[in-house]
Design a protein around this nucleic acid. Structure first.
Lengths: 147, 147
DNA sequence: ATAAACCCCGTACTATAGTACGGAGTCAAG
DNA sequence: CTTGACTCCGTACTATAGTACGGGGTTTAT
């Protein structure tokens, strides 16, 4: 048995078969070799690639951006300096995300501290925690009406 | 002039007017008070709230998750311990994202180092950098436990 | 007081990222 | 050699997150 079938890859990567074919159509996964029967034969690395796509997507990158990340490599068409420039841009994107996630986490941590400190009657929503502590009172009332 | 018009809020938050109405329909923004003419009147805080929604979305949270983040507050319907539990779950989500972003950044940094070192003929794609290094840099302690 | 700019609402359309369907061929076990 | 699971392909459908449109009323700047 040469290579993995699409179903096996899907299972290992934790996605559906359809998703793999979809990524292939989008150019995120290159077309794998086929058996005579037409069945796709994937190398082991395909699993890592798909997992990467998933992770990046969950971090707020679009599939287009993921593709840009994945094709960041030095080859005959792309100079090292060009790759470097693009990689640095991506690093900056990531640093912004890291900083914002950090702030968000800090706000949540403060919020849990809030819960600890007061009883069941505080307010302390995340936005206040984020802004530092704007002003007291003035709390918006949430008119709950889920769509 | 009492409060901001939807257009002003949109401009300050960096979104379109339609997006604000959309968030309102989705329950992410509560229905603001109106003038007699029917015009929405927003308080200043609405801008921060919309910016928060945008940031969180760019970090890979769905609008539903953003809503969950925004409604994390202690009020009469929600006990402090419940809020605490939910907040802690969110903190864990964020820590996972932080760890993955950290790894991704490390891989990109290694990639740029690659570009530096070799000429225009290397390969060194991001997946290799990710799988390859394994034990240098990448300082995030991910706490692989849980779930 | 008039025109430009803004806002109202509902509806319809778009892009992204999948998911599902269905008829046909293929593979692995019993 | 048959059966059931898996694969092929194209097409169609879904959910999410907006965007655009169009016919009106309202504000505001000249």
């Amino acid at each position: 048995m040469e290579g993995l079938t699409i179903g096996r890859v899907a299972k290992r990567a934790g996605v559906g078969v359809e998703t793999i074919r979809f990524y292939e159509r989008k150019g995120l996964l290159e077309d794998p070799p086929r058996r005579e029967s037409g069945y796709r034969q994937y190398p082991e690395e395909a699993v890592a690639r798909i997992r990467f796509i998933r992770r990046a997507k969950d971090l707020g990158f679009s599939l287009r951006e993921v593709d840009e990340l994945l094709t960041l490599r030095v080859d005959r068409r792309t100079s090292a300096s060009e790759v470097r420039r693009r990689a640095e841009a991506k690093i900056e994107d990531i640093e912004i995300k890291l900083a914002e996630l950090g702030r968000m986490k800090a706000a949540l941590v403060e919020l849990t501290a809030c819960c600890e400190g007061r009883g069941a009657t505080g307010e302390c929503p995340i936005l206040e925690a984020l802004e530092g502590d704007s002003r007291s009172g003035a709390g918006q009332q949430t008119g709950r009406s889920r769509k």
